[in-house]
Simulated scan of single mutants.
Amino acid sequence: MENLNTQTQGNGVPQIKSQPIEKVSIIISRGSLDGVYPGLIMANGARMEGIEVTVFFTFFGLEAVIDDKMDNLKVPTVGNPAMHIPTLLGSLPGMSAFATKKMKDEMEKLDIPPVREFVEMIHDTGAEMYACRATVDMFHLTKDDFCPQVDDVISVGKFYELSEGAQIIFT
C-alpha cells in the first residue's frame, strides 16, 4: 500500500510522489457485526501487506473482544438505512436475528471467519490489540473480561504514542 503525497514541480504542475505505508492504527468503536468487521478486514489486509497494525477497541467496539460477548454480535435492523427496510419492519421480533444469520452466511461463503477466529488470526500475524482504559472503566470491566488477544488496556494518550507515524483509521 502506498501513501500519496502531492508536490508541485518548478513549473507549477503537481507531481504525485508515493511512499509506502508502514504502519496503521485502527479504531473500532461500534459493537455490531457491521461495525466490527470493517476494522478487522482492514487490519487483516494490512498485515497481509506487511504493514504494522495496532487495533484500538473503544466504546461499544469492545464487544468484539469481550470474551463472553464476541461470539454473539448482531446486525442492527432498527434505524439502519442501509438495510433498506422501514424502521417499523426492522423492529419486528426476529428481524435482527434474521439479518445476522444472512450476513454470517454470506461471510462464510467468502471464507471470512467468525469474529473470535478473525481476532485470533489477526493477532497471530503480529497485530497489537488494545482496549480503551476510559471505556473499560466506564463499563466497569477488567482485563479479565477480554479475550487473550487483547494485549493490554491503555489510555488514549498511550494509543497515540503507539500510533506515532501511523495512518489512523476510524471505523
Rank of each mutant, 00 (worst) to 15 (best):
G35A: 12
D34H: 04
D67T: 05
K102F: 05
G35L: 01
I28H: 03
K104N: 14
M48Y: 15
G31S: 03
T54M: 05
A64Y: 01
I26T: 11
D105M: 09
T54A: 09
P20E: 10
F57V: 04
K23G: 00
L89W: 04
E106R: 11
A64F: 05
L33H: 01
I85Y: 00
L33C: 10
F59L: 04
K101F: 10
E63K: 12
A64R: 07
D71G: 10
I41K: 07
L110W: 09
S91H: 09
P38S: 03
M48Q: 15
M48F: 13
V36L: 08
P86H: 14
A43I: 04
K104P: 03
L62I: 11
K74W: 10
E49T: 07
M95I: 01
M95T: 00
L89M: 13
L33E: 00
S32E: 11
V75N: 00
T100N: 05
D67I: 02
V65C: 01
V78S: 07
F59I: 14
E106C: 09
E63C: 11
E63G: 03
G61M: 10
D34E: 08
M42E: 09
L110F: 08
P38N: 09
M83L: 13
G90H: 11
K102V: 06
V55I: 14
G94V: 06
P81I: 02
D67A: 12
R47Y: 02
I66Q: 12
K74E: 13
D105Q: 14
V75L: 09
P86Q: 15
K102N: 06
I26N: 01
L92K: 03
K104G: 10
I51M: 14
A64H: 07
R30N: 12
V75Y: 01
F60D: 11
L92Q: 10
Q19R: 15
M107Y: 12
I85V: 13
H84N: 13
L33M: 15
P93S: 07
G61W: 05
D34M: 15
P38E: 14
G79I: 11
S18D: 09
L89I: 15
K69M: 10
F60P: 05
L88G: 12
G79Q: 04
T100P: 00
L89D: 02
T58Q: 13
E22Q: 05
M48A: 15
T58V: 08
Y37G: 07
G39P: 00
G94L: 09
R47Q: 08
Y37T: 04
D71V: 13
S91R: 15
D67S: 06
V75E: 00
H84G: 03
Q19G: 14
E106D: 13
G35M: 07
E63F: 08
K101A: 15
A97I: 07
L62D: 10
K109A: 04
M48I: 14
E22G: 15
E22N: 12
L62N: 14
M107R: 15
K74P: 12
G94F: 01
I51F: 03
M83C: 11
G61T: 06
G90V: 05
G90L: 14
I26R: 02
M95K: 07
D111S: 07
